[in-house]
Amino acid sequence: MAARSKRYALVIDSKKCINCKACVVACRAEYNVPLANTRPWINEETRGVWPKLMAVFQPEQCHHCSHPACVRVCPTGASYQRPDGIVVVNESDCVGCRYCMIACPYDARFFREDKGVVEKCDFCVKRLAQGQLPACVETCPSRVRVFGDLNDPKSRLAELVSGREYRLKKPEAGTGPQIYFLT
């Protein structure tokens, strides 16, 4: 019997987010990202009319799309998708044309001035290879993020996606985003 292929994805339960930015700090520490840039970030929004106001925090990052626009436009193949669905950038092949940044509907990529290349979230592929979770997922104190294999029906992620209501961001872009925001 052929081995079942993996499809990594992320579930985000925004209601649990308290905007502590531990995910941003953990990622920055893991990858030594300059202060001017960040791989994950938190969108802050105020809803309602005073005095009935509500602060909404929504974590954001690369959506590791199933049909990534960044991979399609890359002229050198530096941006590519692994068989497990993770979209990564091969730094040595990146020439720094920034076409992928312009093509990304989520503006999830940034240009590293010091290296002259484009970077983004890669679901911590090095940590995954060692059996660890991505740094942002491991560090989140309120368990906003659930990472896992979408093709494994026993995984917590698959349970959440099949049992809870969720929404995808900008599905009209046609890129097949793989971050599931619980509603």
Partner: peptide, 14 residues
């Protein structure tokens, strides 16, 4: 305009 202009030759490798 490339981030690494000295790597421009890689455009011709693909």
């Amino acid at each position: 305009d490339l981030g690494r202009w000295y790597h421009f030759y890689k455009l011709f490798l693909h």
